[in-house]
Computed example of a mutant assay.
Amino acid sequence: MSNDDFFALPPFKPDEALLTLRRNLRDLRPLAERGGKPGLFELQGQPVLELSADEQGLHARLVKRPARSPEWEKRDCKNAAEVRRLHDEIKRRVGLWTDETP
């Protein structure tokens, strides 16, 4: 066994990361996960986030601003650090969207 194996990061498992992220996002009260389609989150009836996973990684579509026909941004996460950054960005945007005055 070489010393490099001791310090190797565990392999990234997109399916597990997706489940963990969905669970963490359910704690953000303004967000609601659509029951019929897992991974689709809404804010006040407007879709704001879509999550999916495959062998390559975790994929997210996040709106720039909630609207009837929103502009979507695509984010791909290939490791745990990118998933944490995505979670922080989602929390930041939800905070901005819910604190805005019309």
Score class of each variant (00 low, 15 high):
91 K>C: 11
42 E>Q: 09
49 L>W: 00
73 E>Y: 00
81 A>I: 00
3 N>E: 14
51 L>G: 11
76 D>C: 06
51 L>T: 02
70 P>L: 13
45 G>I: 02
45 G>N: 03
73 E>T: 00
74 K>R: 11
35 G>Q: 13
63 V>Q: 13
59 H>D: 05
91 K>L: 10
93 R>A: 08
79 N>V: 05
96 L>R: 12
85 R>Q: 15
16 E>G: 01
75 R>L: 14
47 P>S: 13
69 S>N: 14
10 P>D: 09
55 E>W: 02
94 V>N: 05
51 L>H: 09
57 G>F: 03
27 D>H: 08
38 P>R: 06
66 P>D: 12
43 L>V: 12
80 A>S: 00
14 P>V: 00
68 R>I: 15
21 L>S: 07
57 G>V: 04
39 G>M: 11
2 S>H: 11
95 G>C: 05
18 L>M: 13
35 G>T: 10
71 E>C: 01
57 G>P: 04
18 L>H: 06
98 T>V: 15
33 E>Y: 03
8 A>G: 00
36 G>Q: 11
93 R>D: 07
7 F>L: 11
20 T>Y: 03
65 R>W: 15
22 R>E: 10
39 G>R: 11
99 D>Y: 02
64 K>T: 12
31 L>G: 11
18 L>W: 09
27 D>F: 12
72 W>R: 04
93 R>N: 15
22 R>A: 03
46 Q>Y: 07
67 A>K: 00
72 W>Q: 06
56 Q>P: 01
72 W>T: 06
102 P>E: 14
55 E>F: 06
24 N>C: 02
58 L>N: 02
79 N>M: 03
45 G>P: 08
25 L>H: 13
70 P>C: 14
3 N>T: 13
87 H>M: 08
92 R>P: 08
60 A>N: 12
89 E>S: 15
95 G>M: 04
39 G>P: 05
65 R>G: 10
70 P>A: 14
33 E>D: 03
44 Q>M: 05
84 R>V: 01
86 L>K: 05
25 L>A: 09
22 R>D: 02
78 K>Q: 09
86 L>D: 02
101 T>H: 07
50 E>M: 08
21 L>D: 07
57 G>M: 07
66 P>L: 05
77 C>F: 05
77 C>T: 01
44 Q>T: 07
73 E>S: 04
83 V>N: 04
23 R>L: 01
76 D>P: 05
69 S>D: 14
58 L>C: 06
99 D>F: 00
74 K>D: 10
13 K>T: 15
37 K>T: 09
94 V>A: 03
99 D>C: 04
81 A>M: 09
62 L>S: 13
92 R>S: 13
5 D>E: 13
17 A>M: 12
68 R>V: 14
70 P>H: 10
65 R>H: 15
72 W>P: 01
47 P>T: 06
1 M>D: 06
75 R>N: 10
23 R>A: 09
11 P>T: 09
23 R>G: 02
89 E>D: 15
64 K>D: 15
9 L>K: 04
74 K>E: 12
18 L>P: 09
55 E>Q: 08
37 K>P: 03
87 H>I: 02
76 D>Q: 10
14 P>Q: 00
48 V>A: 10
59 H>T: 03
83 V>L: 09
10 P>V: 03
88 D>M: 04
